[in-house]
Nucleic acid binder design. Structure first.
Lengths: 345, 345
DNA sequence: CTGAAAGCGCTTACAG
DNA sequence: CTGAAAGCGCTTACAG
């Protein structure tokens, strides 16, 4: 039964209440092993009884762990970031860790936030979600706290960001699944509607598309779609207009692009599905609604895994261990949009 | 030009560097007025030059403002919460305030988080997003920090939660817009697929539906849809099966329900749009994709407004001011789904 | 208008 | 195994 104290109850109160000292109470808080079992129990009981929760600020200031992890996001559009954040939040919460969440507007602000949290005494660790290439081009601020990167990986080898754990998705394998599927459907003239050049996944998928096509002797063309759906539509319009030999498959960087393309083509009177195949990536809610064939992106798992990597390191379970790079699979979800009339099976 | 200091540069360093004292530096940090202008400038310059950012932990501990605001969310599904959070983040960031974001799983955890942040020294203020009725039924923990509530309002008058600022949406007006529209379409036998009983907006919309129908002599029936889309579909199935006189309009609590209904009816061979009208609420991305008539919910604005209310209070601009209740309008977005064949215009 | 001192609630060597 | 003391980086009366 938690009594509701008028005034904040502190570590010192617990010490007084149990006839011990601040040092000892702090030790059981820190899970130190060198505390006599009866003493520990007495203190634990008192803490529970009075609903004591240590001040994260004080712990942070004193040099211990604040129990706070910073998360930097490059925006909050397209469900994707919300889901990743959710994964991080779930995993962190399970371990009693709170999140300092920042949404950056543009690479400069993103980098500024990274620099802020890199300083000692701001957070126990930092999770960087989808940092743009512009961010990773700059020199990483030296930092005493561990960083984990989600959906991105520094390019260079001896790069300043190189020591971070990363969690990414197998873009190569995912793209291969998509293209295998389209080939089975009979598609031969493919276009990849590529995502923003600063986006890690976009670059990886583009490269994967190219290499797959040349490996399999496919006529694969890459079209940069720009940053917005409107850009994507414009590109597709150009594409369809100037083609002598018709394109029979469009592989979009993500679901948003794919959906924009499908809607546009239908408005133009193109029969879909059937006239050509369209695929997306992410498997957002909307993808199911319009029967879009897409690669399922494990968004929540990306977040969970990132939090796990960071917290394991913080807990000392992996203190001195080498850098980890976790890669998650994407799985193909076949729906109607990838149906192609020239199906030869 | 920001030099990159090896070791964290502190307030004391700035004092030494400028030949002043910690007190004075602190004063300019706190925007105190009683600092000589030349002194202030000198200190400001030094801070800028060395890229000094005060420790939020230390400030919080010392009794000043930590520059951190806690946000409690009841989950992270359906874009809605992500958008509200985005609004909060944008407004907070503009004022240099960081967010401690927590996602609660269930009312108990939600309440636990509220209690945690209600204690002194955890955050400068707290924003409660959509607290469920189960949460508001309990006694609010007394707290020295200001709270703001989004998308909910305590029921009782002298209620323990009653002193909080709130930001809500005009459910009454929104529902009236929807129903006016449906009546114009010729709909007469309406069903409201109501949301969870613990949800403030759901309860408000249900009440608004009832009162509108009785006010206009409409045959309006309320059907509790449960918490999930599957529940909603089940209810609709029951509804359609046992109706002697056919329903000609379904007013869903939100877009998710509405979309589930539309899909289900189409699978059952019901001609939509045309056979009956369906409307949603929220105006999520998906609503546009399936041409759903819906009420546009100003999600980002809800968040922005909440942050503004809280920060204004913190800045002392509205220190002793009375509690504020801000209500935002929802606007009707007419699309194809509300088309009804018996259109009599 | 400015500085010296105490204190916020913790952790961390240092003794014992 | 335990306690006294110093210190983390700030703010806030209190003097001057």
């Amino acid at each position: 039964m938690t009594s509701s104290p008028k005034h904040k109850i502190t570590l010192y109160d617990i010490a007084r209440l149990t006839g011990t000292s601040k040092s000892t109470v702090s030790r059981v808080l820190m899970n130190a092993t060198d505390v006599a079992e009866p003493t520990r129990q007495k203190i634990l009981d008192a803490m529970a009884q009075h609903g004591y929760t240590p001040s994260r600020f004080a712990r942070g200031l004193a040099g211990g762990r604040s129990g706070m992890v910073a998360v930097v996001l490059p925006g909050m559009y397209s469900g994707y970031y919300a889901e990743v954040l959710k994964g991080i939040a779930v995993a962190a919460h399970q371990r009693g860790v709170r999140l300092i969440t920042s949404i950056a507007h543009g690479p400069d602000e993103y980098f500024g936030l990274v620099a802020e949290y890199a300083e000692p005494g701001r957070a126990d660790g930092v999770i960087l979600v989808s940092p743009a290439a512009e961010v990773l081009r700059r020199k990483a601020p030296p930092s005493p706290v561990p960083f984990v990167m989600v959906s991105a990986r520094p390019v260079g080898r001896d790069d300043s960001w190189g020591r971070m754990d990363t969690v990414t998705v197998d873009n190569e394998g995912g793209m291969a699944e998509v293209l295998d599927h389209l080939r089975e459907q009979g598609c031969r003239r493919l276009v990849h509607l590529a995502g923003p050049a600063g986006n890690y996944d976009a670059v990886a998928r583009r490269r994967a598309f190219d290499s797959y096509c040349s490996r399999h002797g496919l006529a694969g063309q890459v079209q940069s779609a720009g940053d917005t759906n409107a850009d994507a539509i414009r590109e597709v319009r150009e594409l369809m207009r100037h083609k002598s030999v018709p394109v029979d498959g469009i592989v979009a960087f993500n679901d948003d692009f794919a959906i924009a393309v499908v809607r546009h083509l239908r408005e133009q009177g193109v029969r879909l599905p059937g006239a050509l195949a369209v695929t997306g990536c992410d498997d957002e809610h909307a993808a199911g609604l319009i029967d879009l064939t897409t690669l399922h992106m494990p968004m929540v798992e990306l977040g969970e895994e990132a939090a796990r990597l960071l917290l394991d390191r913080l807990d000392g379970r992996r203190a001195g261990l080498s850098t980890r790079h976790v890669m998650l699979n994407m799985t193909l979800v076949v729906r109607a949009s990838s149906f192609f009339k020239c199906h030869i099976n």
